[in-house]
Lab assay of single mutants.
Amino acid sequence: TGIVNVSSSLNVRSSASTSSKVIGSLSGNTKVTIVGEEGAFYKIEYKGSHGYVAAEYI
């Protein structure tokens, strides 16, 4: 489990890349469940599926 540490919002992406499609966003202080790690990204549970967020902001 981690907490989103941004002042505005954090993009949730379809894969572990900044060039991948943005599938949603999370606001600051949102609690997320981390299920894996790929490079600089965490794989998280997101809306019944999975998404990827930049690990530096969690």
Rank of each mutant, 00 (worst) to 15 (best):
Y52C: 00
Y42V: 06
V4W: 04
V53C: 03
S7T: 12
G48S: 07
V6D: 05
S25H: 13
I3R: 10
G36W: 06
L26H: 02
K47E: 12
G28F: 14
Y52S: 00
H50W: 15
G2F: 09
S49I: 12
S27P: 15
S25N: 09
E38Y: 11
S7C: 15
H50V: 14
Y57E: 07
I34G: 00
N11I: 15
A55L: 08
E38K: 06
K47Y: 09
E56R: 14
G24W: 05
S15E: 13
S25A: 11
F41W: 14
F41G: 00
L10Q: 04
G36S: 08
S7D: 10
S27E: 13
N11Y: 13
G28N: 14
S19C: 13
K47T: 04
G48E: 07
E56I: 14
A16R: 05
I44L: 02
S17A: 08
A16V: 05
G48R: 05
V4G: 04
G24S: 02
S20P: 01
I44D: 00
T1A: 10
I3L: 09
S14N: 09
E38C: 14
S9R: 14
R13V: 08
S14E: 15
I44T: 00
S7L: 12
I44Y: 01
F41Y: 09
K21G: 08
L10N: 02
S17D: 12
T1E: 11
T1D: 08
E38L: 07
S20M: 03
I44W: 01
I44H: 01
V53K: 00
K21I: 10
E56K: 14
V35G: 01
T18V: 12
V12E: 00
E38R: 06
R13L: 15
L10T: 08
G28C: 13
G51L: 03
K31I: 14
S14K: 12
V6F: 08
V12R: 03
Y46K: 00
G39V: 03
V6T: 13
T1I: 14
S19W: 09
E56Q: 13
S7R: 12
S17T: 09
K21V: 10
I58A: 01
I44A: 00
S9T: 12
I34Q: 00
A54M: 14
T1R: 09
I58H: 02
S27V: 12
H50C: 09
G28I: 10
K21A: 12
V6H: 10
Y46C: 03
K43Q: 07
A40V: 09
S19A: 11
G36I: 04
E45W: 11
I23A: 02
G36E: 06
Y57A: 08
G39P: 02
N11T: 13
T1N: 09
Y42H: 02
V35Y: 07
V53W: 01
V35L: 14
N29D: 08
E37M: 15
N11F: 13
T33N: 10
Y52F: 10
E56C: 13
G2K: 06
E37L: 15
S8Y: 13
Y42S: 02
E37G: 07
L26V: 09
S49H: 09
I23F: 03
K43W: 05
G2Q: 05
R13Q: 10
G2D: 04
I58F: 05
T33W: 12
G48C: 07
N5Y: 08
S15M: 10
V32F: 04
Y52D: 00
I44M: 02
S8F: 14
S7G: 11
K31A: 10
N11P: 15
E45Q: 09
V32N: 00
I23N: 00
K31M: 13
E37N: 09
N5D: 06
G24Q: 03
V6L: 09
G39Q: 05
T18R: 12
I23D: 01
E37W: 14
S14L: 13
A55E: 04
S19L: 12
G2S: 05
S17E: 07
F41I: 02
H50P: 04
S15I: 06
V35E: 04
K47V: 05
K43P: 01
E37P: 05
S20F: 08
S19V: 09
I44P: 00
V22H: 04
G39W: 04
S7A: 12
G2E: 04
R13D: 01
S7H: 12
S15T: 10
V12T: 02
E45F: 08
G24E: 01
V22K: 06
I44E: 00
I3T: 09
Y46R: 00
N5Q: 08
I58P: 02
G39C: 07
T33M: 10
G2P: 04
S27H: 10
H50S: 07
L26N: 00
G48V: 03
I3W: 15
K43N: 02
V32H: 01
V12I: 08
S27D: 11
Y57K: 07
Y52A: 00
Y46G: 00
L26Q: 02
G39D: 06
S8T: 14
E38N: 06
S49R: 12
Y52M: 01
S25P: 03
